[in-house]
Write a protein that binds this DNA or RNA. Structure first.
Lengths: 296, 296
DNA sequence: ATGAAAGCGCTAACAC
DNA sequence: GTGTTAGCGCTTTCAT
């Protein structure tokens, strides 16, 4: 002990990992941290795992393209688990990492493969509520501002929304795509409101885009929110509650999602035989100032 | 090759790391991702290193306390470099990791130890400009909303600010602390404006806090920005340019900072003998709508 | 309790 | 080129 102190010896984690066959490392895969919803998830997950003696190894999905190469790197890296934050995977990709026996939890994406765990919230219900609620406010020209068209969240929120509108005998005026990004949503909003029949209400597939809509309407089209246009978002990021935005939105239970996801991943890492689970957590409508008041 | 495909063989990165003595891994240390300034830095750094075949291992500094334990983990983990994002280190801590021969680049903190590289921007100049500019607008009761009191950025921005005010024959009305956090800044704003002599201008040590001030003033105190109170922030995060905030701020050149920091770290990892550098990049005042117009 | 040795899966050096 | 071997720094097992 004296000598080890003298030489300021530190055990070599890599050598230890090799012999124990446990890297105490978890891959986190995401494609952007622009949305604070995911950067806060990242922080929470990281602190949780750090407390358990694990550390997160970051992998960013390339904007276009070779996600298979990323998966390959993940497999070689000997991580003990993978946390996918809003990453769309093919069945083949899911099977690949499952075949290597690496536990995976996918957050906010469903993937059509039973071997991995998924944690999400009830996008269909959230969309359904948004559709019904906007219609119930008396809006007649209701549009959807979608996220990434390939993502399950986009598809489910859209499907729920259309169904909600139909249940009120309405159709969706038009659908635009904002790719879950602020800038893209600004462009989409400009297109939407340059039309001869602009919407009088918008459901955006996340808060970041909903806030973009609000900014563009108020400051480029000098329209009032909510008196001219009602806006609903999705996520309930902290920013949505800031008084300037006061965004009516569909809250996803972030804390519970990340808690369940990390617990699930831990369990799967510890017991070989754990069955993958598919959790769909309930969402909560948050009524704020970006939707007009119900007339009654 | 056929057999390796058959068995879907993947080289074991850990075994390779052990023999080559290179983990192709870099530690990133931060204490919060609440400020998008840092989550975007994280994303950019991660993509850069990933393209070079390196991956980031995340370490979060505990809110209170044992940072030495984190450093110890970093050293054991055999990372080839450390990127500190806004982490305040003691001299002893800096020396420790330097003694282990691990290259370190500290972003947005100065540390009183010559052995490690530092990349930051000219906080003193930025603060100086903010002080002079607010005074030049005719403000008479100018306050400072500080960040983390122990951080070098806080201290430098404050020092520059006070000096700027003095150069215009003014003193700082009062100083409050917001710890670089949104919520803390809201509380600080409430304290500031409950006073009998509230400020008529505020310089906040980052944009997140500046926006918090704006929110509270407009919606809790029904004061107008900028006609009642001018506000200046620091960073120039994307949100600052959103029309609702239209925040006058001091831009830090994020892209250049992260580019320089990653390049520096790479160089130090490759050549043993590289001298640590201390880069102070120029800041740029961004005049927007949160400060009143110069009268002339 | 204390020590010696095998081996995790690679790479690099060295023979052939 | 092709094959063999030593060894990276640990943990674990087995013998003392």
């Amino acid at each position: 002990m004296d000598a080890s102190r003298e030489l300021s010896y530190r055990p070599n984690t890599i050598a230890r990992s090799l012999i124990t066959r446990s890297s105490r490392t978890i891959a986190v895969v995401t494609y952007s941290l622009e949305n604070p919803f995911y950067s806060s998830m990242l922080e929470k997950a990281s602190r949780f795992f750090q407390a358990e003696g694990y550390h997160l190894l970051m992998f960013f999905a390339p904007p276009s393209g070779d996600f298979d190469a990323v998966l390959d790197n993940i497999i070689r890296s000997q991580v003990e688990g993978v946390l996918m934050l809003a990453i769309t995977m093919t069945q083949a990709q899911a099977r690949l990492v499952d075949d290597f026996g690496i536990p995976v939890v996918v957050i906010n994406r469903t993937v059509d493969y039973p071997g991995i765990s998924q944690v999400g919230s009830d996008n269909i219900q959230g969309g359904y509520w948004a559709g019904r609620y906007l219609a119930s406010l008396g809006h007649q020209r209701i549009a959807f501002l979608g996220g990434l068209p390939d993502s399950s969240t986009h598809q489910q929120r859209e499907a729920g929304f259309l169904e909600g509108l139909h249940s009120m005998n309405q159709d969706c005026l038009t659908i635009e795509i904002g790719n879950y990004r602020y800038e893209d949503a600004c462009q989409a909003t400009r297109r939407l409101f340059s039309s001869r029949t602009p919407p009088d209400a918008i459901f955006a597939a996340n808060d970041l885009m909903a806030i973009a809509v609000m900014e563009i309407l108020r400051h480029e089209f000098t329209l009032k929110v909510p008196s001219d246009v009602s806006i609903i978002g999705f996520d309930d990021v902290p920013m949505a509650a800031w008084p300037s935005h006061s965004l009516t939105t569909v809250r996803q239970p972030v804390d519970i999602m990340i808690q369940k996801a990390t617990e699930l991943l831990m369990k799967q890492m510890v017991q070989e035989d754990m069955q993958p689970e598919h959790l769909i957590l309930p969402v909560t409508p948050m009524l704020r100032g970006s939707t007009r008041l119900p007339s009654r």
